[in-house]
Design a binder for these strands. Structure first.
Lengths: 236, 236
DNA sequence: TTTTCGTAACTGGTCCTACCATTCGACCAC
DNA sequence: GTGGTCGAATGGTAGGACCAGTTACGAAAA
């Protein structure tokens, strides 16, 4: 039976995996689920597994950004899918500056497309959100608020682009940048940001996809200097 | 003291986290480390923690793609950093076809830049690898080998681009595509792939970065049809 | 001698119980 | 009210016992 076709025998997945799948399914199917999971001991009994197994499963889901576990407080359901991405990138490029450089490069690859797609597909409510973010930027009084409003602007555009993956990558970048910031490695937010955002915003509103793409490219190239990179670092 | 700056109090990290960090550090610092970790019981004693904690830590590192644990066999050190990315994307976009569409969109955003950068920076050995991949494609006799050679070509270019993050994303895409393939959802590999790859290869070799970028764009737009998408699906 | 095959000794997987550490809320003294 | 104290609930850690695959080695068969 040399020529016979052998079906792969799929090994019964470990208990932990089954529990993970079941929990993940519960979380996904019912996002309106109570934000808090039962206590470990209780949930373990309900699922018919030992507390050990249940713990390994929840730990795993925590790492995937689906749960948040805190001692004495319980286990909450969250939605932080970008967390594993950030963790991977930190492992992949340990050097902080180099990581930021590569991330900004990726941003330069992705965001102009986001702007282009947003110009083509943004709904009225998505458009409103982009505008609101821009208003926030104009109203921002301190450096903190500036960064938040800046990020929200880009986030809103990513959402409007309709590509969830691009959006997730952006979110991960934001997190890593914030982590760098917390450790004292900070850039600035140039005054020109407002004007450049306005150009992008206008292009998107007017459905000028090419203009939106180019405006975003320009903005990112200039903004890269705020973080201490040169345009060559990013675009070449 | 309204205006005072409150420093975040960093909570003492849990034991599991400490073990994770230590293990991760050991793996990173010493990649030539023995590919196999000591047995759980033994390692737990060495680290001075309970086997429970050690297990949760290794499970975590397994999910991050740094370890591979198999019953009766032991724990091996591996390098599959793209795995958590794939897992996240599967959670983010559960529908397979839609996920592939968005992934191909991202690919369309990233790979032309990769080609451009590769044309600018590829070393001689990187260039050789790209050429070797192309030769493989020409020599491929069955559909299986075609896909592998195709992927290797793109991978080689990503490596030559010098952006590890872009490379990681590509790797993740490949994995998800293969998973789809295994489940019966398969595309084809058009004959035109060879010619298009040759154009890209030539442009990179001749350091024509703009030409390389455009050739890659063209190639991806056409190849998207092999997977059942239209050019509009990808570029708009 | 060579091959086959069963067993023993690993390995990780699961379960159980007990106890520690943190959090939160109810209650009490001031 | 304000602040402190204590207890209940929660997750964190420990250690032991046993189950379930994997491997290696030696005995039995060819």
């Amino acid at each position: 039976m040399t020529g016979a076709s052998f079906e792969y025998i799929l090994r019964s997945p470990t208990l932990v995996e089954k529990v993970c799948q079941q929990l993940a399914a519960m979380l996904r199917v019912d996002p309106g689920h109570e934000a808090k999971l039962p206590a470990e001991r209780e949930l373990a009994v309900k699922l018919g597994v030992s507390r050990n197994v249940l713990r390994e499963a929840t730990k795993r889901l925590e790492l995937q950004g689906l749960l948040e576990i805190r001692q004495g407080q319980g286990t909450r359901v969250v939605d932080r899918l970008h967390k594993p991405i950030s963790a991977s990138l930190e492992l992949l490029v340990p050097k902080e500056k180099e990581r930021m450089r590569q991330l900004f490069q990726v941003r330069y690859m992705i965001e102009p497309h986001n702007a282009q797609r947003a110009a083509q597909h943004a709904t009225r409510s998505q458009m409103k959100r982009i505008e609101a973010a821009h208003d926030c930027l104009l109203a921002a009084s301190n450096a903190e608020a500036l960064v938040v409003a800046d990020m929200e602007f880009h986030r809103a555009i990513a959402d409007a682009s309709g590509n969830q993956i691009a959006r997730l990558l952006l979110e991960s970048l934001a997190e890593l940048r914030e982590a760098s910031h917390a450790k004292g490695y900070r850039g600035r937010t140039s005054d020109r940001t407002e004007d450049e955002h306005l150009v992008i915003l206008t292009a998107i509103r007017d459905r000028q996809s090419e203009a939106a793409r180019r405006a975003m490219e320009k903005h990112l190239l200039r903004a890269s200097e705020d973080l201490g990179f040169s345009a060559q670092d990013i675009s070449e």
